[in-house]
Each structure stands twice: as C-alpha cells, then as structure tokens.
Write a protein that binds this DNA or RNA. Structure first.
Length: 485
RNA sequence: GGCCCCAUGGUCAAGUGGUCAAGACGUCGCCCUCUCACGGCGAAAUCAGGAGUUCGACUCUCCUUGGGGUCACCA
C-alpha cells in the first residue's frame, strides 16, 4: 500500500443514544487521523428505516462537538464526496449492485425473509445461514421475475472453494474458508443497501484509508474483502478494536448501567474525563506511565501499535478516579460555576458562601451529581443526637460538647466580622484561655453546626458557608438539645 | 454447534528470549489531621495448564482449558 493520505470515518447509525463503544470508535478514528495529520469524516448510516430514531443525528453532532472530535467532512459541513447520509445515496448502491450481477458476483434472490432451513423430517436443522436456493436460477428467468415485479433482494455470490485472507493492523492476518461465507444480502427488497454493502461502497468512494470499527465485525470482514476484490478496488487498512465489556465479561450493553455518553454526563462525569477514560479502554501509550491526557496530548501519542487485542472491562471505579482528577485540576472559577448549578437549587432562599463551599468540595467530589447529597446537612437542619458528639480520640461526648459550646457561643456571637481569620482568632483565644483542646473545640463546634458526624470540611469552613446568622441559630438549637439530654 | 478472535494481579495494563515481571484503579496499613477527603509513604496481589524450540521462555510453536465475537432484508 502506498503512502496514501490517512482518512478515517465515524459511521454511526442514528438509532438513539451515543453508546460508549461507539464513542470510543469515534475517538480512535479521530486520533488515528489526527496523529497522522489525516482527515476524519462523519457519515450517517441510516439504511435501517425501522430503527431510525428522530433526533438521533443531533445527538451525534452534539456529542462529537462536546468531546472535541471535529470532523473534516460530513452531512452538516459537506465535502468532496457527499452526500454523507446513506439514505441520500440510494441510486449509487443500486448501480453498483447491478454491476456485480452483470459480473456474476451477485444474484437476485426471491426467497421470503428469514426462511429457516429444514431437513427431511421438517425439523429445523442446526445449520445456519441462507442455503443459496436462488443462486442457480437462470439469468433470463431471474430477469423476468424482476420485471414482473416480484419482490427480491440481491445477494453476494461467495466463492464455494478456496480461502480468503486479509491483514488487520491490530489482529494480524486472518484467513477463512470461502465455503464458510454466507451469500449475504447486499440490497434489501426495499431498495436500501445493507451495512455489509454500503460500508464497502462508501468507504471506497470516500477514499477512507483506515476502516476502524469494533471487533464484532472481524468475522464478516472476509466478505467485504471479497467485495473489494470483485470491484477491483484497493483493500484499505483494517483496524479492529477490542470489545468493551461489562464486569461480567459480556459485550457492554444497557443492562450494565449507564453506557451512553449522555447518561454519564448526567451522572456528573466531565466529558473530558470520559474521553480520557475511553481512550484507555484497549489502548496504552506504552513505555510511559502517564494516564491523564488531554485530547491534544492523545493526538500526539496515539498509535495503532498500542491497541490491545483482548476485550477491556469498563471500570466505573477507574472512571470515578479519572473524574476526580479532572475536578481537582479544574480552574477554581470553572469549578465554582459547576458547584453553583448543583447547589443553588438545593439552597433555595437560604444564603450561603459559594466560594467556601466550592473550596471545600473540590478535593472531595467524585461526580457532580453527588453534590446535593453531600450538602444536605447545609441545606437542611438535620436531627440531633448525642452520638454525634462522641469522639474517642478527642475525649469528646455530648456532655463535654455542651460545656464547650456554652463557653464558646457567646464569643462567636461577638465576632466582629464573620471571616475565617476572625473566627479562628476567637476560637484560638478561647481555647487557650479556657484550656480546651483543639479536637474538642473544633469537634464540638463542627458537630454542633452540622448535626452530622462526617462532613466535607471543618468547623470553620462550615460556619463560613452557613453564614453568621444560620450558624448562631444552629448553635442555639444544639445547645437546647444538649441541655435537655 | 460451525467459523473467527483473545488469554500478564479483582480491573486497566507495560513487556516484544536473559527484568527482583513497570505503572494506575480498587483493597489494606501507616503518616498528616477538628470528622471526611486531598496529599505522602508502604503492603498484599499476575504471566491459565501441558508439551515442545532454545544454553535460557511471560515473550516463539502446538495442544488443552477458559472467555468472547459472529452466524438478520441490524449496524
């Protein structure tokens, strides 16, 4: 193969959400193109009218855009090989199919759909696939029946002997016996091509150099190779990707939880983290140990040799970690904006200090959607209990907490400005004057303010977030509880 | 079941005949510490099995076992 310009395509079918597996294909296709300064194009494969979902094309555009996978040709931006939507290319497929019939590499088939093979006793046989019943129909008879308006499909005529092999850039050379290949349908009775036919025609016409797709297509690739040969077209590079599977080792699907890009985003995963995560499902840079890569960096390091052959299990644990890395590294202002959209509705009319809240949350949040639960103790006054104040190490319990708070609350009420520095100053003074250990002081205050044993952030941070008024009211309420206990 | 593919710790994986077999996630422990995190340090944990080839195999070959994919007028 000559040093042709690298060109890859993402060819999704508009059937709904953007599955993680599809997105990974798109990402690898994009990276293979970009790492070789080639082109990445988008083609919509809408040849299945029954599965077509309104609006699915927009999901595809939107997802690619938010992930930063810009394409060079596509239905929305055009290009030299349009149209890029298969339903608009129908006449083309018919023409090429007829060409194959004339060459003797395809034939019309009049069998009803889904016919099951049966043996002499009428039992279903164990053999699968079409039995080539119509393959022997004389050309004139076939032409007559087609003329007469009989419904038919066009099937590829597979060689009955010999073998076909091709070399995949990831899996190496693969060979199959031709007799194993089914006379697959190229053109359906409704005039639409099947994927098996359209992808070959379009990939050739659009000058795609590297066909990148999931390994579930590996076993049907010999049939495509035969098609390329029948047309006398140059065989492109094949780059089959290892499957993404769930924890149970099975191909990732709906029952494995959130497997759509939108689902993940809704759960609070950052698009950049998702992209980084799926880049490593079946690929590794080799040599180096870095795992956090921006899309730009991936464009520089990605290479086909780094693609693995074994299926990869999608790990939510690892995704969580990646998301945390991205959250921690976010510029504070960006992070604050995200916290605001989660927190504002939860706080409602209640005032709170967004800066401090964001600061406290940044090193602790795993997914954005976790925020509402994490801040519930701030947006609601939770029920109190004696156990809240128990801390063995600090020798703190409800009784001691009452003493501490009784002593400290008046001083807090008198703080001139409700700032970190001022509050810390008051508490330190109180601590040394009244001889209260820091653990007891802070522990009692934090529990008294939060009414929750474990909190993100400490006593002072909590006080700042809540503000003076709410903090003092909460302390008064706590003291009332403690006095009665 | 036929055909095809795959096989390093629980997971993602580096490795390409000679390494004490990287690193990350997760798990566990310690430190830091007003709780929880973050951060730091450390630990346990892997070459599926069997034959070969070779002076020497995780690396090469074969077989076994295990797993997966595919057998649609879906892609």
């Amino acid at each position: 193969m000559t040093a042709k310009r690298i060109k890859t395509r993402f060819a999704p079918s508009p059937t709904g959400m953007m599955h993680i597996g599809n997105l990974r294909s798109a990402l690898y296709e994009y990276l293979i193109a970009r790492s070789g300064s080639g082109d990445f194009i988008l083609r919509i494969e809408d040849t299945d009218r029954e599965r077509y979902v309104e609006g699915a094309v927009d999901v595809i555009y939107r997802t690619l855009r938010t992930c930063g996978l810009d394409h060079d040709e596509g239905p929305d931006i055009g290009g030299p090989h349009g149209p890029y939507t298969q339903s608009e290319r129908l006449p083309l497929y018919g023409r090429y199919a007829r060409m194959l019939i004339e060459q003797g590499d395809a034939y019309p088939c009049f069998c009803p759909p889904g016919r099951v093979d049966r043996d002499e006793e009428g039992q279903e046989t164990e053999t699968f696939g079409y039995d080539r019943r119509c393959r022997g129909i004389a050309r004139e008879e076939a032409a007559g029946r087609m003329q007469a308006g009989e419904s038919y499909v066009i099937r590829q005529k597979m060689p009955l002997e010999g073998e076909t092999s091709f070399t995949d850039d990831v899996y190496g050379t693969i060979t199959v016996m031709n007799k194993e290949l089914e006379d697959q349908i190229l053109l359906k009775s409704d005039g639409y091509p099947t994927y098996n036919f359209a992808n070959v025609v379009d990939d050739h016409l659009m000058e795609v150099s590297h066909i990148v797709r999931g390994s579930e297509y590996l076993s049907s690739t010999p049939k495509y190779v035969l098609l390329y040969q029948a047309f006398g077209w140059e065989i492109p590079h094949f780059v089959h990707l290892p499957l993404i599977v769930g924890e149970d080792g099975k191909k990732l699907s709906k029952r494995h939880g959130s497997t759509g890009f939108d689902d993940l985003v809704e759960k609070g995963y950052l698009p950049r983290a998702i992209v980084n995560m799926i880049a490593f499902l079946g690929w590794a840079p080799g040599g180096e140990t870095q795992e956090i890569f921006s899309l730009k960096e991936l464009e520089e390091r990605f290479h086909i040799e780094g693609i693995n052959k074994a299926p990869a299990v999608f790990s939510y644990d690892k995704l969580n970690w990646m998301n945390e890395q991205y959250i921690r590294a976010l510029p504070f202002e960006d992070w604050k904006g995200m916290v605001a959209t989660e927190a504002l509705p939860a706080f409602g009319d209640q005032a709170f200090d967004l800066d401090m809240l964001a600061r406290v949350l940044q090193p602790r949040v795993t997914r954005l959607s976790d925020i509402p639960d994490m801040i519930r103790f701030l947006t609601e006054r939770l029920p109190l209990s004696a156990e809240l104040f128990y801390n063995k190490k600090a020798k703190l319990d409800a009784g001691r907490a009452k003493e501490v708070l009784e002593a400290v609350k008046p001083r807090l009420s008198a703080v001139p400005a409700w700032t970190e520095e001022a509050i810390l100053d008051v508490l330190e003074t109180a601590g040394s004057e009244l001889d209260i250990k820091k653990g007891q002081l802070m522990g009692a205050l934090r529990a008294g303010l939060a009414a929750q044993q474990v909190t993100p952030g400490g006593a002072i941070e909590t006080a700042i977030i809540l503000g003076r008024e709410e903090s003092l009211e909460r302390l008064e309420r706590t003291l009332e509880f403690l006095r009665e206990a």
